[in-house]
């Protein structure tokens, strides 16, 4: 059995990617299963989905602790602990990254590959340039590096199951298959995340209440960040007032200040700023 973990953001198509992989594996004559981890279903929020492919009936359900491959649809997610936890010896990490990214720091025993799935998606008019739908391009790349499904089955699954732009999605899968690059250069540019610390469960006494949402760091949802040009700021405070997450506070002189850990990158502040002094720029 081969097991794949997909990491993406709401709107990128990670759940559909896992399901398409299952459909394609079935067309290859295998027994598939796929499963999304469900949390907040919001655009930009991190999403995890899983797929299993086997030639025997599958006797497990639920999340995958020891994947053979981790597919990262948004490389910003590599900032967070636990993304590649449990990856098997010689497992693959496949990252959506532009060709300019030449290398990742990876421990021995991990194989890395990247594909510019965002550019491929934009080339094929899938999603928008700020939120390209990268799932079919990266599945093509996954088919190539792991051999978990054939490109033919993948294309047929896309043709059967993708209601919008099936031809463009098939072409994106083919391009991903062609363009995927193994990353072997030891110079590191993007470090892999540390493992997630194991949480021992406390057994509390007394009625429980959830803690303040100040502790919920919605920064993980962000793929765009507001950049405020204070030189043109009129201190009207619109951004402060409209931010749905109170992620803009005001300094002593009344200038807006971004709370990095809570800004989810929705862009409302940029939209409402009268002199248009806030620009939404892509996260590094």
């Amino acid at each position: 059995m081969q097991e794949v973990r997909f990491l993406g953001r709401g709107g990128q198509g990670a759940v559909i990617a896992a399901e398409l992989l299952a459909q394609a594996a079935f067309l290859d004559g295998k027994i598939p299963q796929s499963f999304p981890f469900f949390g907040v279903e919001r655009r930009g929020a991190p999403v995890t989905a899983y797929a299993r492919v086997s030639s025997e009936p599958i006797e497990v359900r639920g999340s995958i602790a020891t994947p053979d491959a981790v597919v990262v649809l948004d490389r910003g997610l590599l900032r967070f602990a636990g993304a590649t936890d449990g990856l098997r010896e010689n497992g693959w990490v496949l990252v959506n990254a532009p060709a300019s990214v030449q290398a990742f720091a990876a421990p021995a025993g991990i194989r890395l590959a990247s594909v510019d799935a965002a550019r491929i998606a934009v080339d094929h008019h899938l999603g928008s340039p700020t939120l390209p739908i990268v799932n079919t391009a990266i599945l093509g790349a996954l088919a190539r590096v792991t051999g978990i499904v054939s490109l033919d089955a993948l294309e047929r699954a896309i043709a059967a199951a993708v209601p919008r732009k099936p031809q463009e999605n098939r072409a994106a899968a083919r391009a991903g298959f062609e363009e995927v690059r193994p990353l072997t250069d030891p110079r590191s540019r993007l470090p892999l995340p540390p493992p997630r610390p194991r949480r021992e469960l406390p057994l509390p006494e007394g009625p429980l209440a959830l803690r303040s949402s100040e502790e919920i760091l919605t920064a993980s949802w962000r793929s765009l960040r507001p950049q405020i040009d204070l030189s043109r700021c009129t201190r009207c405070n619109f951004c402060w007032k409209y931010c749905p997450d109170v992620a803009i506070t005001l300094d002593a002189e009344g200038y807006p200040k971004l709370e990095e850990e809570h800004c989810k990158g929705c862009g409302i502040c940029a939209e409402v700023c009268p002199p248009k002094t806030i620009a939404m720029v892509a996260e590094a």
């Binding site: 399901e19 299952a22 459909q23 079935f26 027994i31 598939p32 299963q33 796929s34 499963f35 999304p36 469900f38 599958i58 359900r61 639920g62």
Partner: peptide
């Protein structure tokens, strides 16, 4: 929930 509702299999 999810273990069946959102899990796909043959």
């Amino acid at each position: 929930a999810f273990y069946l509702s959102h899990t796909v299999e043959p």
